[in-house]
Design a protein around this nucleic acid. Structure first.
Lengths: 121, 121
DNA sequence: TTAGTATTTAACCATTAAGTTAATTAACCG
DNA sequence: CGGTTAATTAACTTAATGGTTAAATACTAA
């Protein structure tokens, strides 16, 4: 809950951990469920470590049922990433608008004014 | 341009680098402009390294004007982060809805039915 | 109590990351 | 040319990551 962006982003920087998040977004699962798809490429303790990183970042919560450890995904840190990113929405929309205008200029030049068309050698 | 999420997220995991992005979102700046606010807490080579991380992640582009190196922010990787995050929008909205319903239940219990109100001891 | 299942911890190793200081490159200015 | 400014590279230290295997914990079930 005292999640900070440093830990969140750094947890998200690993593809294994992003895959685990994808899995958990479709519902709770315990460690062995989560581990299964990865056991060809890494050991169970490696999985435990990845889950610990996600847990420290507040991205998942582990509970206890008998020997099992059901994990669930937490929304808050994902929302924080979203909020951080939205800060720059204006910036990238403007960027893409400029690109669009540029592309329009290019096609106008090639089709209407018959200037050199780089795509045809 | 061949930016991947691993490098992007890992670049964003550092507060210095996020501050650099914030600066660049308000306009181009060269290395010494970007460095200035950080030179009390780190050396110039450290700044160079942070900028290199951002560059490898495709988040910024460095050009050359005389001895200066103007840097500009690139929209694409930020958009990719946004897209990745949006995948989970449904998930967190649902989470927050459940929380809202829960909170509503609590206040209903305390105010209408006169059950124990934890906030008043 | 003993065996089995689920998961974590310990100890270790190799690689990468973040910082340092000192030296180097590159371009400009007089 | 020689000095100054802007930035990078080199070489090094320290700490963090991501993986390993082997041992330990914690619970269930017979």
């Amino acid at each position: 809950m005292i999640s900070n962006l440093d830990q969140t982003f750094s947890a998200l920087a690993d593809p294994t951990r992003r895959a685990m998040i994808a899995r958990l977004s479709r519902g709770e699962a315990d460690v062995s469920d989560i581990a299964r798809p990865f056991l060809r490429s890494m050991s169970l303790p490696a999985v435990t470590k990845h889950l610990k990183v996600l847990e420290r970042a507040g991205l998942i919560t582990k509970t206890r049922v008998a020997q099992r450890r059901p994990c669930k995904l937490n929304a808050a840190p994902l929302k924080e990433v979203e909020d951080w990113t939205q800060q720059y929405r204006a910036f990238w929309e403007e960027s893409f608008d400029r690109l669009e205008v540029f592309l329009k200029t290019v096609t106008t030049n090639t089709t209407k004014k018959g200037k050199k068309n780089v795509r045809n050698k």
